[in-house]
């Protein structure tokens, strides 16, 4: 991206941050909900470890706690839930206004989403992680490479998540009602991404299915860096794979968008 393109992108990201930062009460509520669910999820996983004799699939008790609170913190940042803002603009026809703007539609939405993610990280992710770390323990990664790559990995997780949601929302060009599709997406993405249970606990066949999708790049992989499930060369591999998914999915999004806009121009909306 050239410097000329970076400036509006930064402005859009700033606007995204400010827009969401007005919803403070919502952030407090979100922290509360994420914390309650974190306690429940971790309790179940610890019981699994107890039955398995202390460790399960390479996770000890501290490892499970680190996983549970990282995933509760991350979920607010990468939002796998029902985001339909773009679909709403497509349905109402407002998308034509966005397309007429002198900025790239996909990058503009991505910039705004990154701004939102920064706000979510500060307001919704940190408190549940600190709460969980204080009460149940947390493994701070010792590998300095991890500390350097973690911000990159989380950013890429947001980008992959955005690219997926962008594609799902584009379906609104062809379908009149996408609520069912969105529900389907966030359920499957949450499960296969490793939000409910770590992917490493899946039976073999389900792991194969999960790793064939981009969803672990959104949740499981950044957490693997922290829990130490990914070590050595795998640390770089995780980030490289995330980058790969980001490029492929953003590219696919652009392709679908150009098909959709051609259709829009031909049919006149």
């Amino acid at each position: 991206m050239s410097l000329a393109a970076a400036r509006p992108a930064a402005a859009l990201a700033g606007a995204g941050f400010r827009r969401w930062s007005t919803y403070r009460q919502a952030a407090v509520a979100g922290v509360f909900v994420n914390t309650v669910f974190g306690v429940i999820k971790l309790s179940i996983l610890l019981a699994v470890a107890d039955s398995a004799g202390g460790t399960v699939a390479g996770y000890d008790r501290i490892g499970l706690s680190t996983y549970a609170w990282m995933s509760q913190g991350l979920i607010a940042v990468v939002v796998i839930n029902a985001w339909t803002e773009l679909a709403d603009r497509i349905r109402t026809g407002d998308i034509a206004v966005d397309l007429a703007r002198p900025v790239d539609l996909q990058l503009a939405w991505l910039a705004a989403d990154l701004g939102r993610a920064v706000w979510a990280l500060l307001s919704r992710a940190i408190v549940p992680i600190l709460f969980g770390a204080a009460l149940f323990g947390f493994r701070v990664p010792g590998n300095p490479l991890v500390l350097v790559l973690l911000p990159v990995s989380i950013t890429l997780a947001v980008v992959v998540s955005f690219a997926c949601r962008f594609l799902v929302n584009l379906a609104a060009f062809w379908l009149t009602e996408i609520r069912g599709l969105v529900t389907f997406y966030f359920l499957v993405a949450g499960l296969l991404g490793g939000h409910l249970v770590p992917v490493q606990l899946f039976p073999g066949w389900l792991q194969t299915v999960a790793y064939a999708t981009p969803f672990p790049a959104i949740i499981q992989w950044p957490i693997d860096l922290v829990t130490g499930q990914a070590t050595g060369w795998a640390v770089g591999g995780v980030v490289a794979a995330q980058l790969g998914w980001a490029v492929v999915l953003l590219g696919l999004g652009r392709l679908v968008l150009s098909r959709a806009t051609r259709r829009l121009v031909v049919q006149g909306g």
């Binding site: 699994v48 039955s51 398995a52 699939a57 409910l196 249970v197 606990l201 899946f202 039976p203 389900l206």
Partner: peptide, 12 residues
């Protein structure tokens, strides 16, 4: 989630 848990252990 219940199913995955029981692929790892036989009792919870």
């Amino acid at each position: 989630e219940v199913y995955v848990v029981f692929t790892q252990v036989s009792d919870l």
